[in-house]
Amino acid sequence: MTSLSPLFLPLLFATGLVAGCIDAIAGGGGLITVPVLLGIGLPPQVALGTNKLQSTFGSASAMFHFVKAGTVNLRDARRGIFWTAVGAGIGAYTVQQIDPGFLKRFIPYLLLAILAYTIFTPKLGAEEVHPRMRKEVFYTVFGLLIGFYDGFLGPGTGSFWVISIMLGLGFDMRKGTGYTKLFNFVSNIVSLVVFIVGGKVVLLAGLLMGAGQACGARVGAKLVIHKGTRFVRPVFICSVLAVTAKLFYDNYR
């Protein structure tokens, strides 16, 4: 059992609050939360497991507000929910069996491509367009792929979902962000169960940070709902840039 100094408690709540708001808008909250969890002395595996607990609160809060606002239709996304859960379960199991290093080295280049495509396609996600894939096919393929990645490694998952939903289903960025939070919540829950079974979660830290996440995610989701794509796009670009830079730094420092 990892003990926490009482001095860390306000820091954990405040960290969750800021990360939850950013994550609900464009993803990338893990760039804030994981370093803080490592900084208070948690081992890497425990920091990742605890981060899954707190991020579940944020994605649940954001998802609730998107569903309540009518941005997300749960019935419409049932197939995506199922296959994302399957993919996340397989990914969380697989990461315990093999070294994830090869994927960690490849992901920054994929995020860099997403960043370039988003910047040089200014109308991407500005409005809904005709879908390029049937929903049944999209949810099966990308639910498995991105769900697996989130369970296996995680950084940039929100960015992959948003860009895939906009390109595959033709959603605008506001709606794509809403559905992203739904699928993030599903993969977070499945991964969290695996970490809890493995004893890699500090409940006090995760719950306290999760309370902040839920509050921050509520604010972020409302901003997305009311301000739309013009607000989300620059935040999304900054988030992808930050995640990409962090991964390149980790890989090549």
Score class of each variant (00 low, 15 high):
Ser5Arg: 03
Pro6Ala: 10
Leu9Glu: 08
Pro10Val: 08
Leu12Cys: 12
Phe13Met: 07
Ala14Asp: 01
Ala19Ile: 10
Gly20Glu: 01
Ala26His: 03
Gly30Arg: 00
Ile32Val: 10
Ile32Asn: 12
Thr33Trp: 00
Val34Asn: 07
Val34Glu: 01
Val34Asp: 06
Pro35Tyr: 01
Leu38Pro: 07
Gly39Asp: 08
Gly39Tyr: 03
Leu42Asn: 03
Lys52His: 13
Leu53Trp: 09
Gln54Tyr: 09
Gln54His: 05
Phe64Gly: 00
Lys68Thr: 10
Val72Phe: 12
Asn73Gly: 13
Arg78Tyr: 10
Ile81Asp: 09
Ile81Pro: 06
Trp83Ala: 03
Ala85Leu: 13
Ala85Asn: 02
Gly87Pro: 01
Tyr93Asn: 14
Gln96Leu: 13
Leu103Glu: 02
Leu103Lys: 05
Arg105Tyr: 15
Arg105Met: 15
Phe106His: 07
Ile107Tyr: 02
Tyr109Pro: 01
Leu112Asp: 02
Ala116Lys: 00
Pro122Ser: 03
Leu124Cys: 01
Leu124Asn: 00
Ala126Glu: 11
Ala126Asn: 02
Glu127Lys: 15
Glu127Asp: 03
Val129Ile: 13
Pro131Phe: 01
Met133Ser: 03
Met133Val: 13
Lys135His: 03
Lys135Asp: 14
Lys135Gly: 11
Val137Cys: 02
Tyr139Phe: 14
Thr140Trp: 06
Phe142Ala: 12
Gly143Val: 07
Gly143Thr: 08
Ile146Val: 13
Ile146Lys: 09
Gly147His: 04
Asp150Ser: 04
Asp150Leu: 05
Gly151Glu: 12
Gly154Val: 05
Thr157Arg: 09
Thr157Tyr: 04
Ser159Leu: 04
Ile163Leu: 14
Met166Phe: 04
Leu167Asp: 08
Gly168Asn: 09
Gly170Asn: 12
Asp172Arg: 04
Gly178Val: 08
Gly178Tyr: 05
Gly178Thr: 04
Tyr179Met: 11
Thr180Ser: 07
Lys181Asp: 06
Phe183Lys: 02
Phe185Val: 00
Val186Phe: 00
Val190Pro: 03
Ser191Pro: 04
Leu192Gln: 06
Val194Asn: 09
Gly199Trp: 13
Lys200Ile: 01
Leu203Thr: 04
Gly216Arg: 09
Gly220Asn: 09
Ala221Pro: 05
His226Thr: 14
Thr229Ser: 13
Arg230Leu: 07
Val240Ser: 10
Val240Asn: 03
Val240Ala: 08
Ala242Pro: 01
Thr244Met: 14
Leu247Phe: 01
Phe248Thr: 06
Phe248Ala: 06
Tyr249Ser: 05
Tyr249Leu: 12
Asp250Phe: 01
Tyr252Arg: 14
